[in-house]
């Protein structure tokens, strides 16, 4: 790879099409180490497809997807390998292991050997409760550690999934619509939580809630029809004529 970059994530000219529908058209985006970035855009703008490409779920037709200062070509790995490399992903619909307890959800997510024999006889059976509790404290679920994850409220499941991401100890977190279906108080708490997480991790957040994006106080990228429409501070992007046009319809 001839491209030299200092970015944690570097997307250049990425295109993906499904049966002729172009989900991404030559998308380019870079994220600096330690940065938090909010991605906005109307439905079908390509936000989720972009995450699928980064996490190895979807292969791109062309373009470069580089990670960690250009040292890793993400297009060559699958989901499990990319998770090991250090990219954690939270889904739009909260997906936690409903028939496990809250603590077990974190236990399974913790960084470490993920082979079947390690899980059967090895290290994963000897993880200290304090390690798990540390993550549950961060997301304020410590009082719920023994409950089944399926019994949690929608907002609590979102937080549990964030705790699972943190337990993976990734360099980059991709967070898809973290405050969908949350109350105002929960939304506010989530913004604080993400800012806290951003102190040690690079973060990409996809979100529709403009109040929430504003509370994050980070750079914003607006996608439209598979490529970048505008990028900058929230005020600059929200004031951009074309962004307004796209959101309100012509």
């Amino acid at each position: 790879m001839s491209t030299v970059t200092q970015s944690i994530l570097y997307l250049d000219g990425v295109s993906v099409s499904f049966d002729g529908f172009k989900a991404l058209r030559s998308l380019s985006l870079t994220l600096e180490p330690g940065e938090m970035r909010a991605i906005i855009g109307p439905n079908g703008a390509g936000k989720t497809t972009m995450m699928d490409v980064i996490t190895g779920k979807t292969r791109c037709d062309e373009g470069d997807v580089l990670f960690d200062k250009g040292s890793v070509d993400l297009t060559r790995f699958d989901e499990a390998a990319i998770a090991e490399i250090g990219i954690g992903r939270k889904f739009q619909k909260p997906t936690v292991f409903e028939s496990h307890t809250v603590a077990d959800n974190v236990l399974l997510a913790l960084k470490g050997d993920r082979g079947p024999f390690s899980a059967l006889f090895g290290a994963r059976n000897r993880i200290a409760a304090e390690t798990i509790d540390r993550y549950l404290t961060i997301v304020r679920l410590i009082d719920h550690r023994a409950r089944l994850a399926g019994d949690l409220s929608h907002g609590q499941k979102q937080w549990l999934e964030i705790a699972m991401l943190l337990a993976q100890d990734p360099k980059l977190l991709l967070i898809d619509e973290p405050v969908a279906g949350m109350t105002d108080a929960e939304t506010e708490a989530t913004a604080d939580l993400l800012k806290e997480i951003n102190k040690d991790h690079s973060v990409i957040v996809v979100e529709h809630d403009m109040g929430f994006v504003r509370a994050l106080g980070c750079r914003v990228t607006c996608l439209h029809e598979g490529s970048v429409l505008a990028e900058g501070s929230i005020d600059a992007v929200a004031g951009n004529e074309r962004v307004v046009e796209v959101y309100l319809g012509r």
Binding site: A83, T95, E98, S99, R114
Partner: peptide
């Protein structure tokens, strides 16, 4: 064992398990 928990995770949310890094 924890392996049993991984199995149940695969049963209930296979892609989640994969995105956590499990083969």
């Amino acid at each position: 064992s924890t392996y049993g928990k991984v199995l149940v995770s695969i049963r209930d949310a296979e892609s989640r398990t994969r995105f956590l890094g499990y083969r």
